[in-house]
Amino acid sequence: MLPISRRIERALLALLALLFAWATAGGNATATESLDSLRPVVVAPGIFVFPGSPGAPSPGNGGIVSNIGVIIGSSGVVMVGTGTSDAHGERLLQAVAKLTDLPVVLAINTYAGPEHVLGNTAFARHGIPILAHRDTDDYMARNCENCIRNLQSAIGEAPLAGSRLERSNELIDATTSMRIAGRQLEILHFGATQQPGSIAVFDSRSGVLFAGGMAAFDVTPDAHDADLPAWKAALLEMRRMPLRWVVPGRGPVGEPVRLDEVIAYLGGLGDATERAYRSGVDLAEAPRAAGLPQFSKWAMYAAVHPRNVHFQYLKLETQELAR
């Protein structure tokens, strides 16, 4: 269904991407912290990423922990993610203006995370439409006041001055193909996965997939609202697509094979939590009992993995009660 690029173009893309992969190699905190969140890195011709910091939101990184994607077509620009705050959204737009004279014609909220959607206000101010899955918009509406409060306590109030929730205004209910800005984009919804409305954005010409909240490389993914089997199925489906490069929501751009690491983590998380639950381990003890040392090198493991276990444990309880 997806067009296959010509050989020369593919070779060029591969070279560029390799350069990028080299530039961001390592992926651990020390390697990526030197990345400037407003200095775009090239993924493929016309495709850039403003890299987020791999750690937890902190005063040091200003909460800029999500990769923000830029897709430049022949007639405009599509942004994947809007940033952590109104000010960050504004700075991203200024940085894009240095890359191209073309107008930003669409921003996409691939999941409901404060580091990915709180820049919506800046985009709205410039009249840029904001696309999201209906469930993401709903999730933002229900949770963002709490998100902003939590983020304030992590990074301080100053960086979030003027930040509030701006709802998405172009809602989709399912996978959607769109011709926009002179590019062909596939907006992919695999059902409720990492979050109910998580989507990925695939640029067929470059073979670059922006996986949003559904992928994180070298960073422990947030699975607290996740349907693990559905999420794993989505990642397996991505693996069958003609991908060249994957831009995860967090961590360095990687080859598609790196999605297997996320699949392995989700499998490990599900199995270890279920084992603890079935054997009568209580909620307080479960995060320790369901540790996954093979993933403990990932950024945020110590903070995020126990939380993932906690919420998956509660999910098992709810399932048992629903029977």
Binding site: Y139, R142, N143, N146, P196, D225, L321, A322
Partner: peptide
């Protein structure tokens, strides 16, 4: 910890109400 009493509870209140009052007693030994 903060926000426990005013944090949104289960997302799907309709499903939660359908389960309302279901109980389980469990012994693991």
């Amino acid at each position: 910890a903060a926000g426990g009493c005013s944090a949104p509870g289960g997302k799907d209140q309709a499903a939660a109400l359908a389960r309302l009052g279901k109980m389980k007693l469990r012994i693991d030994e």
